[in-house]
Amino acid sequence: MPQYALITGASSGIGLALAEALARRGHALILVARERPALESIACELSQRFGVEVMFRVCDLTEPLQLSGLLYEVEQCDYQIDLLINNAGAACAGSFLDNDWQRERKLLELNVFALSRLCHALGNAMARRGSGRILNVASLAAFQPGPWLSSYYASKAFVLHFSEGLREELQEQGVQVSALCPGPVRTPFWRNARLDMRPLIGSKWLMSAEQLAQLALLGLDRQQAVIIPGWRNRLLARAAQLSPRRLARRLAARLNRHLLPR
């Protein structure tokens, strides 16, 4: 029976780059996203280029019935998923009180609840088999508060702390859990979050999705609990942890306001 990597948010950006990197390694894939045309094209291309089985499932993870349907299919078809990558995520830039509540709600549904549900369902299957890996995509934002992106920063802090706690719970059952905490990455995330990426263009802090994917898989191979790609990002994460909280949130507020559209 083939073993699959299930990747959410696989139609673009980090998810797509991780799918390609895994396909290059010969790993069978199940790609999950909302956009059928993009998924069909990607599945066909990766299968032809790398000779691996690539399936896709169209699913809006913020809709509980669709998420339940996806998990039911995975269980009934007995797909052996040895790697779960919870990559799908959203951000909502601007003042929390001014933002549309439905956008804020969907952010929490996707970044927190859908991720937790997938970890619970597929983590149980892995624990019963005695093997498996889970990679939850957090962010450098997880290490500090982030005014003007308050819900996003808080959701990524949840992902980081949840992943570290789950790692300790599951290690004796043969399941490895890791959190990926990238800094700025050149993806459609910025446009979808209504952020202005132009101030970061040309910056050494900005990484390509392909670079990130390679470093993320290297961190998985090394069984790292928290994967922070790039020495600059590791330095920034450490600085955020050591800085007084008041200073950390004020610096984040200044940076995030600078990235808001004008």
Rank of each mutant, 00 (worst) to 15 (best):
M1A: 15
P2L: 11
Q3Y: 11
Q3C: 04
A5Q: 01
I7E: 00
I7T: 03
I7K: 01
A10G: 11
S12F: 14
I14P: 01
I14R: 07
G15T: 03
L16V: 12
L16Q: 14
L18A: 01
L18G: 02
E20C: 04
A23M: 08
R25P: 11
R25T: 06
H27W: 08
A28R: 15
A28G: 10
I30Y: 10
I30A: 04
A33Y: 12
R34Y: 10
R34V: 09
P37S: 10
A38F: 14
E40K: 14
E40V: 14
C44K: 14
C44Y: 13
E45Q: 12
L46S: 02
L46V: 06
L46H: 01
F50V: 04
M55I: 03
F56I: 00
R57F: 12
D60V: 15
D60N: 15
L61H: 04
T62L: 03
S68L: 14
L71S: 00
Y72V: 04
Y72E: 01
V74R: 02
E75F: 09
E75S: 12
D78H: 15
D78L: 13
Q80L: 07
I81P: 03
L83H: 04
L83D: 01
N87H: 14
N87W: 10
A90H: 07
A93C: 09
A93V: 02
G94L: 03
G94F: 00
F96Q: 15
L97F: 11
D98N: 05
E104Q: 11
E109C: 12
V112A: 13
F113E: 05
A114Q: 11
S116E: 08
L118R: 06
L118F: 10
H120M: 13
A121W: 04
A121C: 12
A121M: 09
A121P: 02
A121L: 06
N124H: 07
A127T: 02
R128C: 08
R129Q: 00
R133G: 06
A138T: 07
S139V: 07
A141C: 14
A141K: 12
F143H: 04
F143Y: 05
G146L: 12
P147F: 08
W148L: 02
W148P: 00
S151C: 12
A154C: 13
A154E: 13
S155V: 13
V159H: 11
S163A: 15
G165Q: 10
L166H: 07
L166G: 09
E169G: 03
Q173S: 11
V175L: 06
V175W: 08
Q176N: 11
Q176R: 14
V185C: 10
T187Y: 14
F189G: 05
R191Q: 15
N192M: 01
N192K: 02
M197R: 12
R198G: 00
R198P: 00
G202I: 03
G202H: 09
S203G: 08
W205Y: 12
W205Q: 11
S208W: 11
A209C: 04
A209H: 05
E210Y: 03
Q211S: 04
L215R: 09
L215Y: 01
L217V: 06
G219N: 02
L220I: 14
L220K: 14
I228A: 11
P229K: 09
N233A: 15
L236Q: 08
L236P: 00
A240Q: 09
S243W: 04
P244Y: 09
R245Y: 13
L247D: 09
A248Y: 06
R249T: 13
R249P: 10
L251M: 14
R257I: 01
R257E: 02
R262M: 02
